[in-house]
Design a protein around this nucleic acid. Sequence first.
DNA 1: TGCCCCTGTATACGATCGTATCGTATACGA
DNA 2: TCGTATACGATACGATCGTATACAGGGGCA
Lengths: 205, 205
Amino acid sequence: MPQNATETAPTTQLNRRQRLILAGRHLFAEKGYSAAGVREIAAEAGVSIGLIRTHFGSKAGLREEIDRQVIAQIEDLCSRASEHLGTEALDLLVEDAVEWVERERDALLYVRAALMEKTPGSQALLRQLLEIMRRFVALNRERGLLQDDVDEEWAATFLVIDFLGPAVLEPFSEEEFGMSMYHREMVKRRSAFMNRVVTRGFMKS
Amino acid sequence: MPQNATETAPTTQLNRRQRLILAGRHLFAEKGYSAAGVREIAAEAGVSIGLIRTHFGSKAGLREEIDRQVIAQIEDLCSRASEHLGTEALDLLVEDAVEWVERERDALLYVRAALMEKTPGSQALLRQLLEIMRRFVALNRERGLLQDDVDEEWAATFLVIDFLGPAVLEPFSEEEFGMSMYHREMVKRRSAFMNRVVTRGFMKS
DNA sequence: TGCCCCTGTATACGATCGTATCGTATACGA
DNA sequence: TCGTATACGATACGATCGTATACAGGGGCA
């Protein structure tokens, strides 16, 4: 039977499994894969160590499952923006990304941490981001929204870097900028700046 | 007496110490701080484990020394570009960065790895990059090379992200782009694209 | 009722971690 | 030439790592 979705989840299988995933995602994101131990993960999830083996086979299996879920979230995140064009689509992407980060901060920090270790999962994650940005650039070119003679492959890479950049800086953001990279005010300024850059640049030639 | 600076260094203290630093930098960069073991580092350096304690007190002490050396290299790297203005300075920075990466590839990958873990060293590293870019932006504003109403803080952050971006993608670059991010051809295309972006953008408004 | 998966916990195991200790070799000043 | 400080390696130690095993409750079905 389905249980209600309260936070203090009881003892059903799905809940414990999902709690392990969330705890693993949190600790992998915070300390890195190697530094996060299975006992620590199990403790944070409030279950015993053996469950990791039961559900995921091993610590690596847990990571693979986390990778799958996070990749699905990214796909989801970009779905709305991918139906639009030009800077409007970028605005939508930023908007959805902010909402996503506020809702699932650990997922973002997990993406960040995953990219630091070259695993099949992280490779898939990056490839997905690249594909999304390539499609975006191609679509804009077709609609005549790209300037002439643009290196499209680098434009897509540029967008990926720009998407990941704030995530990379996020752990240092509080000290360096006084607030999170995903704070509303920060996002607004950054969004304005990036819109300006992609359409006009910021330096005189 | 000073010994000659041949590669196959003998048994003097400085050489072994420096070999440990290089081995640590390499393995920390490749596997991350936690995953790289002291035995592995000592083996790669060709010395015994105890030397890490002798010279650096602990594994963490070794990392701190590596941080210091890498930060000094970054400072050095940016010194030439910081004497110039506009896109010319950016070109110089790219040029010097490429030369540096070819000469000290491990150092770049170490920067990348260091930023993934929030340590005093990585914080200092990021702060240094930010300061360099802030000075660059301010200098260009004073000389009238900035467009009007530019958010200078975000411009500096943008430049940092853009500096770090290729390093973040580097481990995936061979698979995704067929060559290193710091391959001459890659650098040339990227440099051209970025010069265009900062002066004109790439999308129509 | 008896059997059996399934989910789950507790605990044991071998390996490896970073660090500490100790013996020896070497270099240098008196 | 001796004395001492330092450089260095071999090895031991306690902790913790990820994984494997043994066993307990609890529905579903014959």
